[in-house]
């Protein structure tokens, strides 16, 4: 094979590399949302959280010179928005979906407002780990330059699954999500549990946002998110509220997003708008295929408004 060029072999490689690069924000947002939804609440505001995380992470990395400080601040900003969501939803007669839409707007607006001075400067980026050192091909080496956040996400998924299944707090969370009445009867503080779950979910989504600005594509601007936050919320339903399935779903989406540009770089340019819509079509198709009007989805928390 020509050393410099991969030809058609580049397409699967690009899809694979793209899956790793593009999937991380999906992964973090969907893990966070998974946790929140398990407590019986949906937070649609994670799109705003993602954008806020991207902005605050980039700004912090630029101001302090430390990208990891950026990741931390992005997570904290995310949990702040999560706490706000939970606090408002704890009030009577408040629809969690509506609060999510409101926070999507507020988070995005605040990020754009405060982020103006950070569009131009270049912030230090998160370092990548060169897993491809063994390969002679520059493309393979670059594809395997993996960001540690991706690995953190990978490790987090089974950890969350284990935590939800076997630990005490995991059980409490699931009871609150399955039946608020039962949880109340058992004396668990429903609102506090949901607050913690939403704050943790917001933290993850904020970190996912910082990946966008601090690793890939690695820049802050107002068009950074093209709906990754909201798509990830849909992913959770598709992944049946299982953190490990969230990983596979995110990889699938990252790959779908990389397909269009990869095909074009080898000369297939027809209908590129339709290729670009592939992730959305795929989400919708999967939701249609896996939902049912008759019974609740397997794994769905009974208190969740989206599944009722």
């Amino acid at each position: 094979m020509d050393h410099a060029s991969l030809g058609w072999w580049g397409v699967p490689l690009a899809v694979l590399a793209g899956a790793i690069r593009v999937s991380t924000p999906f992964l973090f947002v969907s893990l966070g949302e998974c946790l929140t939804e398990k407590s019986g609440r949906i937070n649609l505001g994670l799109e705003g959280t993602l954008v806020m995380g991207a902005m605050s992470g980039y700004a912090t990395a630029y101001l302090t010179g430390n990208p990891w400080a950026g990741v931390l601040v992005a997570g904290l900003a995310g949990s702040l928005l999560g706490v706000l969501h939970a606090a408002i939803c704890a009030l009577e007669r408040v629809n969690d979906i509506a609060v999510g839409i409101a926070l999507m707007l507020l988070g995005t607006g605040l990020a754009f407002f405060l982020g103006k001075p950070f569009i131009q400067p270049q912030a230090p980026q998160l370092p990548a780990i060169p897993f491809g050192w063994w390969s002679g091909s520059a493309q393979v080496r670059s594809a395997l330059d993996i960001n540690p956040l991706f690995l953190v996400g990978l490790a987090l998924a089974p950890l969350l699954l284990w935590g939800l299944r076997t630990t005490r707090w995991g059980m409490v969370l699931r009871i609150v999500g399955e039946s608020a009445e039962a949880a109340r009867a058992m004396g668990y503080p429903i609102n506090r549990v949901r607050l913690l779950a939403t704050a943790a979910g917001g933290f993850f989504a904020g970190v996912g946002g910082s990946f966008l600005s601090l690793s890939y594509p690695g820049s802050w601007n107002e068009r950074l998110s093209s709906g990754q936050g909201i798509t990830a919320v849909a992913l959770v339903i598709f992944a049946r509220w299982d953190p490990v399935l969230c990983v596979w779903a995110s990889l699938l989406f990252g790959g779908a997003g990389a397909l269009g540009p990869a095909l074009q770089s080898v000369g297939v340019t027809q209908g590129y708008h339709l290729f670009n819509a592939a992730p959305y079509v795929l989400t919708l198709a999967i939701m249609i295929a896996t939902s049912s009007s008759r019974h609740r989805l397997a794994g769905a928390p009974a208190e969740l408004s989206v599944t009722r």
Partner: peptide
């Protein structure tokens, strides 16, 4: 203006 797509295209 599509930053993620542009980065993906550049890498491809």
């Amino acid at each position: 203006s599509m930053p993620v797509k542009e980065a993906e295209a550049a890498n491809s």
